[in-house]
Measured scan of single mutants.
Amino acid sequence: TQTTHELTIPNNLIGCIIGRQGANINEIRQMSGAQIKIANPVEGSSGRQVTITGSAASISLAQYLINARLSSE
């Protein structure tokens, strides 16, 4: 079954999640098997909405990979 998880990434950290020309986010997508959508910046908001869709296992793996990127910054 597909589930969806949403999280907010601070604007100053979204770059390390996306990577150069989307390299990091594509790697996270491939490794986790989850669909990951990053919302466009919202004016006045300090973060970007990230939506992860997939199986429970792929979502938790995607979250783990995202958190690993954030903590390495």
Rank of each mutant, 00 (worst) to 15 (best):
Gln2Cys: 06
Thr3Met: 15
Thr3Pro: 07
His5Ile: 14
His5Pro: 02
His5Ala: 15
Glu6Trp: 09
Ile9Tyr: 03
Ile9Ala: 02
Ile9Phe: 14
Pro10Gln: 03
Pro10Gly: 03
Asn11Phe: 10
Asn11Arg: 06
Leu13His: 10
Leu13Ala: 10
Cys16Gln: 12
Ile18Glu: 08
Arg20Ser: 09
Arg20Phe: 14
Gln21Trp: 05
Gln21His: 11
Gly22Lys: 05
Gly22Thr: 04
Gly22Arg: 06
Ala23Gly: 10
Ala23Gln: 13
Asn24Gly: 11
Ile25Asp: 00
Ile25Leu: 10
Ile25Val: 05
Asn26Glu: 11
Glu27Asp: 09
Glu27Met: 12
Ile28Leu: 08
Ile28Ala: 02
Arg29Tyr: 03
Arg29Val: 08
Arg29Gly: 08
Gln30Ser: 13
Gln30Cys: 05
Gln30Asp: 03
Met31Glu: 13
Ser32Leu: 02
Gly33Ser: 04
Gly33Asp: 02
Gly33Leu: 02
Gly33Cys: 02
Gly33Ala: 04
Ala34His: 03
Ala34Arg: 02
Ile38Arg: 02
Ile38Glu: 02
Ile38Ser: 01
Ile38Trp: 03
Ala39Pro: 04
Asn40Trp: 03
Asn40Gln: 14
Asn40Met: 10
Pro41Phe: 13
Val42Leu: 08
Val42His: 07
Val42Cys: 09
Val42Phe: 05
Glu43Phe: 07
Ser45Ile: 09
Ser45Met: 12
Ser46Ile: 09
Gly47Ile: 04
Gly47Phe: 08
Gly47Asp: 13
Arg48Phe: 07
Arg48Glu: 01
Arg48His: 08
Arg48Gly: 02
Gln49Trp: 02
Gln49Ala: 12
Val50Asp: 01
Thr51Ile: 09
Thr51Val: 11
Thr51Gly: 03
Ile52Cys: 00
Ile52Lys: 02
Ile52His: 00
Thr53Ser: 11
Ala57Ser: 12
Ala57Thr: 08
Ile59Met: 03
Ile59Asn: 04
Ile59Lys: 05
Ser60Met: 09
Ser60Cys: 09
Ser60Glu: 15
Ser60Ile: 05
Leu61Asn: 06
Leu61Glu: 14
Leu61Arg: 15
Ala62Glu: 00
Gln63Met: 11
Gln63Cys: 10
Leu65Gln: 04
Leu65Ile: 03
Asn67Trp: 07
Asn67Thr: 08
Ala68Asp: 14
Arg69Asn: 09
Leu70Pro: 03
Ser71Asp: 11
Ser71Asn: 11
Ser72Leu: 08
Ser72Arg: 15
Glu73Leu: 12
Glu73Asp: 15
